[in-house]
């Protein structure tokens, strides 16, 4: 492994992540022994995803350069873990738990009905490019089914003891927020019809 570059390299580099998040990157690297920079790959990927919910090839390369890893190695981490994305999806990922304990409390019906009301299938994104519905495994909230989390560039938020009506209301709020907020993301999705 090539770990010759010192911490100062990070700030010198002009690539987007390093220039925008120099302080955050230093703080992340400081958590691990200097010769174990590779441990920072997961937190750096989260940092990168803060921008727009997926990590592109150039950013993977940049993270690789910071940590002394090949781009392929970084890409394999992105591929292995389900919370990293290498292509754009909806701005908000609504991840509904349909694992066994939640399914015993009606989570499957909840999923089907919500998708029907949105006119999409599980795994698909609404036409405005904002909402992706995903089925996920246990989220450690099994006593409060139906439940889901919303993953966006802002992080993850849990919503427990949900009804379809509640969820639709939340989706409307997310849509309002997305159209009002200063999104760089909307411009990527030129096929937006809203």
């Amino acid at each position: 492994m090539n770990v010759s570059d010192g911490a100062s390299e990070v700030t010198k580099s002009l690539s987007p992540l390093s220039s925008k998040y120099a302080r955050e990157i230093e703080a992340i690297l400081a958590k691990y022994p200097p010769e174990q920079r590779r441990s920072a790959v997961m937190p750096l990927l989260y940092l990168a995803q803060k921008e727009r919910m997926y990590v592109d090839r150039e950013t993977m390369q940049e993270i690789g350069e910071i940590l002394g890893m090949s781009t392929t190695d970084v890409a394999s981490i992105v591929g292995f873990y389900s919370l990293y994305y290498d292509e754009p999806g909806g701005k908000y990922h609504i991840q509904i738990c349909t694992d066994l304990p939640c399914a015993l409390r009606g989570a499957e019906d909840f999923l089907v009905e919500l998708c029907e009301r949105l006119g999409i299938l599980p795994g698909e994104t609404t036409k405005d490019g904002l909402i992706t519905i995903e089925e996920v495994m246990c989220l450690a909230a099994c006593d409060n089914a139906p439940m889901f989390q919303v993953q966006s560039s802002q992080g993850l938020e849990y919503y427990e003891n949900q009804t379809v009506e509640n969820a639709l209301k939340l989706i409307e709020e997310l849509r309002t927020m997305a159209t009002r907020g200063p999104g760089h993301y909307e411009s990527i999705r030129s096929d937006s019809d809203e």
Binding site: K31, Q36, R38, S39, F80
Partner: peptide, 27 residues
């Protein structure tokens, strides 16, 4: 003490997969 976030992989609860993951490798 520091925190370290995984990224959605049940196997990382297994202690040696967890350690691999912390080292920046596949879990």
């Amino acid at each position: 003490i520091s925190t370290h976030l995984g990224a959605g992989a049940y196997i990382c609860g297994e202690e040696t997969a967890l350690l691999e993951s912390m080292e920046g490798k596949l879990g």
